[in-house]
Structures are given as structure tokens and as C-alpha cells.
Design a protein around this nucleic acid. Structure first.
Lengths: 226, 226
DNA sequence: ATGTAACCTTTCATCGTCTGTAAGTGTTTT
DNA sequence: AAAACACTTACAGACGATGAAAGGTTACAT
């Protein structure tokens, strides 16, 4: 059963949407507190987000951008603003669909299921700066190309993408690679890191893995334009 | 430069669309003869298809279904029919986007680039019955899972997907596997076919590879519902 | 400047997976 | 029943990924 989160401040509208979607057999959660919405959403990790643009406290556009930067969850923007400018802006920020209220039930459901179908099978994809990583096979998609990373390099990159901008200790990385904290082989880790860096350089990916002396390693995400 | 094919019978409208898209730096081709449109399109293998629903001789819906069955090229339906029913039907048939005429230039361009972005990096994907195959890495996507096929099994499945429902001779398969017609090793081919079948069975893919005695092999595509 | 600890790189042997060979078993057709 | 074709399984060689080892480089304190 697919899981949808609704971000909408008008209670009436929100309840109607929830009702429609529940009847269509979706699991629905509502966001009612509008601080730190993105974190709330990520914690729920739904299959789709229904986003209103007119929110108190936060800009819907800003929210859309944040969500897209921190996840690959599809966003369907549903708003009463029917200006072309808003539509273009939302799409430019990475929104997957733009519908104007009022909106027929059938159209909404069709678009929702359309967006969900698009993302089918992409749930194992992690997003990096201009590339995607399949967590199951460690297939890396970049530009118009794809390669399969060796298991260890894949696991390392996976760890980095799951903790963008955080420092990850060697212990954690070893745990991810070999499933144990005992007998940690710092050298083997080092070799695998070197290999990952070389692979990324060969693929012309922006070199982003930094060592933080005495602490561990960090993947720094460059702010993308747009 | 992205390549777009326009399927539209009204000359004036067609030329206007072509003009808009060319100015936006797309390579554009027009379909003017409405027999065997799908084959014409496949021969051009564009990055996107702009499809009008009101065509002489052929039903736009039928066309949309055909294209989607025989390729993974995205389809943007652009039509003067503004009924909800048509929209739902088109989306149900796999259309990626539905816009009604008249349509502002900016909206059209935004949606076109939106659809193209969605498909970015998917150009190497071949579609099978309920699964996708990445031609570069031989990563197989099925249900909510993915695996990397060994090279030979990947090449074989690739050949079958490129020639659905056709009988492929052993010579052709050997050529695809080893790049030569000399010293054809029918046994090695046989072993690799067995392995592919076993892999597909393990993944619960519908078993579809049939041998045609004395001729070769064939992948039979089951008609999907919908 | 110098020493030390932390970090990085390269080379090489080992291991596991993919592959073709070979031998043997089924199945269809005449 | 025999021949031709199709399929399966076991095994050994080849190849790529991995970790051990040794040596080089960088950062920091004194």
C-alpha cells in the first residue's frame, strides 16, 4: 500500500484530500505543524508528497526545493495559485506534477497514480550531486552513463550518501563494510577509499570525499545551482 | 541536443510547434504521413514524442498504446480535447504528460523539459514484461528489486528484448555474444541460455524464452492488461 | 627544522565468480 | 530405432575484486 503525505494548512481541504486518497486505498499522513516540515516528511519517508504552495510560516517553493535536495521522493504540487509563473517555478524546482485547485477527484487520483508509477522501482536509489546510486546492485548512474561499482566501493558511497555532510568515523565505515567492530582493519578501509576516489575521478564526478583528521571522513555536497 | 518528433495533422499548428521547439534548441521532426506512424517514430528514435489525439486514419489513443508497448520513449499528449475522460484515458495508456490546446509557449516548454529530465539517464533501458534492463551494466529491475546479470546473460536478454516476438538465429546470438560468426560454439551458447533461463526463473520472471527447432530462439511477450 | 602520528598509494597473492569445455541426458522427427 | 537437435550438469581455467604489506606523503607539535 502506497504512502502519501499531505502538506496543506486549510483543515477542510486537507480532510477532503485525505478522504479521497484513503478511499482510493492509500495510506495517508497529514502535516499540521509547519516547523521543520522537511524533517517530519523524511521521518515518515512516504512514496509521494502532496504539497500546497500557500503555507503559513514557510514558503512552499522553499519546501519543495528542500525536499528535492534531501531526498528523491516525488512531489505533486496542488495549489490554488493558477499563475503560469508559479507553475514554471515549481517545475523548475523539481516538482513532479502541478495541479490547480479546484481539482476533480478523478484527475487528482490519475495524476497521483501516474507519478507513483513513474517512481516505481526507484525506491532503492540514493541521490548524489548529479548522480544516482542503486543501493541493491551498486549501479551508479551519471550523466547518460551507468556503471556497476565493486561491492566495497558501493557500500562506502552508500554510507556517504546516507550521511551527506556528516563526518563518518572509521569505525562506522568498517562496520558497514564488514559488519563487525572487532578486528577493524584501517588499512583495508583506506585502500577501498582510495579505490572509490579513483573510480569517482575516472567518472569525472566532483571529488568530494574529505578526510577529517582524527575524526573520519565526510562527503561534502556542493550546492547545486537552480 | 534533444530530439523531438511531432505527430499532428493540422499544418498550421504543426509548424508553430516546430518553430517554438526549434527556437528552444531542440531538433524537431514532423510526421506528415499517417500510415504506420509507430514504425516511422521508432526509426527516428527521438527523445520525446509530441502527440495530437485527433488524427486522420489512426486513433491517437491507439498510437499512444502502440508506442508505449514497443518502446520506452516518453509521450506528451497535446490536444484540443479538454475532457477529463480523454485525459484519464491517455494517462492510463501510459502517456507521460497531457496538455490542452491552446497552450502557452512557456508551459509547453516547461513540460517538455520536465518530461525529458525525468527520462534523463534512462535512455539505456530496455523494457520487458514487467521488468527493465540497463543495456550498459545489465542491471535488471523487477518488481521492487534489482540485480546485475552476468555479461553473457545480459547480452542474451538484450538481444531478446531488441527483437521481441522475433525468432533469433543461433548465429545472430553468437555474433552478439562473441562478435564473430566463425568458430561458432553452439554448446557454449546453449549453456548460457540455460543459465539465463535459470536466472529468470529464480527472479520469478515469466518464462518466455522458447526454442524454435532448427531456427533459433524467441522471446514471446505476454500481452499486458490495461 | 625535526620527529611523529595520521593518512595515502601502489604492488602482489588470494579468493570468488563467470565462463567455456566436455560428457551425458532428453526430446522430436523421420 | 536411429539421427538430429536440444538441454543439463560438473569441472577447470580466466578474470576481477579484495586485503596484506611496504613505502610514501602530509599535518601538526615541539
Amino acid at each position: 500500500m502506497k504512502h502519501i503525505v499531505i502538506v496543506e494548512d486549510e483543515t477542510l481541504m486537507r480532510e477532503e484530500l485525505t478522504d479521497i486518497l484513503r478511499k482510493a486505498d492509500y495510506q495517508v499522513d497529514e502535516i499540521c505543524a509547519f516547523q521543520d516540515v522537511t524533517s517530519q516528511i523524511l521521518a515518515l519517508s512516504p512514496d509521494l508528497i502532496l504539497l500546497d504552495l500557500n503555507l503559513p510560516e514557510v514558503s512552499g517553493f522553499q519546501l519543495c526545493r528542500e525536499i528535492k535536495q534531501r531526498s528523491t521522493i516525488p512531489v505533486l504540487v496542488l495549489t490554488s495559485r493558477d499563475g503560469l509563473k508559479d507553475e514554471l517555478r515549481a517545475l523548475g524546482l523539481g516538482a513532479d506534477e502541478y495541479l490547480t485547485k479546484p481539482c476533480r477527484k478523478e484527475r487528482l487520483l490519475a495524476r497521483v497514480s501516474n507519478v507513483l508509477k513513474r517512481y516505481e522501482g526507484r525506491s532503492h536509489l540514493l541521490e548524489g550531486a548529479g548522480y544516482l546510486l542503486d543501493r541493491l546492485t551498486y549501479t551508479l548512474y551519471i550523466h547518460n552513463h551507468s556503471t556497476v561499482l565493486p561491492k566495497n566501493q558501493g557500500k562506502l558511497l552508500e554510507m556517504f550518501l546516507l550521511h551527506k555532510n556528516e563526518v563518518i568515523s572509521k569505525e562506522e565505515l568498517c562496520l558497514a563494510l564488514w559488519g563487525t567492530t572487532e578486528f577493524i582493519d584501517e588499512n583495508a578501509l583506506q585502500v577501498n577509499l582510495t579505490r572509490l576516489k579513483k573510480t569517482m575521478a575516472d567518472l569525472m564526478m566532483p571529488q568530494q570525499i574529505q578526510s577529517v583528521r582524527g575524526m573520519g571522513y565526510r562527503l561534502t555536497a556542493p550546492q547545486d545551482a537552480q
